[in-house]
Amino acid sequence: MIDIKQNAMTEEIEMLVGKFGSTRDALMPIIQNIQINHGMISDFAQQEVARMLDVHPVEVYGVVTFYSFLSETPKGRYIVRLCRTISCDMAGKEAVARAVERELGIRFGETTADNKFSLEYINCMGMCDQGPSMLVNDLVFTKLTPHTVVDILSKFK
C-alpha cells in the first residue's frame, strides 16, 4: 500500500518536474503544488523532489520549514490562521483568539482530533484597517468579534 502511494507521488513529482523544469528554481512551484494537492509535503516527497532537482533533501526541508504556508506534517482540512500583528492585536485579537480556541477545543499550533481544523497564528496580511482578521484556507474574514468568529467557524463544521 505504501509502495503504491509512493509510486503515485513519484509520478506526480515527475509530472511537475516536466512542467516546471528540473533546475533549482523549479523547487518553489513544485513544492507549492504538492502542498495544494496533499495538504503537506511528506519526507518521501521532499526526498523525491531533491533527487529529481539534484539538490540535497535537507535544502528542500529548509525551504519547507521556512515558509508558513508549506508544511512537512499533516494539517487539518481547514487551516485557521489568525493575524497576530499589532493592528489586529489592538483591535481585539486576544478575545477572538480565546473564542476560537474555545470553539475548536484546541490551542494555537494544534490540530483537532478529527483532523478537520488546524489553528495557527500568522503575521500581517494587509487587512490592518479591518482587524482583527483571519484566514480559513484561502478565505479572508475581517472585523472579527468573539461572536462572529464562532458563527464563521460553525459554517465549516
Binding site: 519526507d43 521532499q46 526526498q47 539538490v55 540535497h56 533533501p57 535537507v58 535544502e59 526541508y61 529548509g62 520549514t65 521556512f66 512537512e72
Partner: peptide, 20 residues
C-alpha cells in the same frame, strides 16, 4: 557537497538541523 546540515525555520526560530 554532502548536504546533511541546513537551517530550519526562520527568524528567531532558526535552527541548524538535519533532514526532518
Amino acid at each position: 557537497e554532502v548536504g546533511v546540515l541546513e537551517a530550519k525555520n526562520r527568524g528567531n526560530n532558526t535552527k541548524i538541523t538535519t533532514f526532518m
